[in-house]
Design a protein around this nucleic acid. Structure first.
Length: 121
DNA sequence: CGCAGGGCTCTAT
DNA sequence: GATAGAGCCCTGC
């Protein structure tokens, strides 16, 4: 199986106006322990182009990857353009996970699982 | 082959 | 919350 391809598919299915955590991505790829690898993959572009990386945050709702965007506030701007409120904290940009986190269900997990199986990844 | 480090998380205190 | 410690997994040197 190819973790990067899986992560890529999952990322491209993140609904408009929602955010997810690295851990969720890893979970949907059937690799709960790979949260850190997700961040790595995003930073190095291993997931390919057209990845809405701005919708991916750490477990605290903080835009930990903001520094990897063109400008420090690029990620914030993209999120706000989708209707996600981003606030400034001493830790960095932050969103309200309670409101905007993509709530994945078992059905979602099963759906991705079948897609992975179909594409043999 | 070892080692450090990276957009992380979870549990415990 | 804040802090600390321990996993986990890849890549690059």
């Amino acid at each position: 199986m190819d973790f990067y391809k899986r992560a890529s598919i999952v990322c491209q299915n993140i609904p408009y106006g929602t955010v997810v955590t690295y851990g969720q991505i890893a979970l949907l790829c059937q690799k709960p322990k790979n949260s850190r690898q997700v961040g790595y993959a995003l930073r190095t572009g291993k997931l390919g182009p057209n990845i809405p990386a701005h919708r991916i945050l750490n477990a605290s709702g903080i835009l930990s990857g903001a520094t990897s965007f063109e400008t420090y506030d690029q990620q914030k701007i993209l999120l706000e353009s989708e209707g996600v409120t981003v606030i400034r904290t001493d830790k960095g940009w932050k969103t309200d996970l309670k409101k905007y986190q993509w709530k994945t269900t078992l059905d979602d997990a099963l759906y991705f699982e079948s897609v992975f199986k179909q594409n043999n990844i």
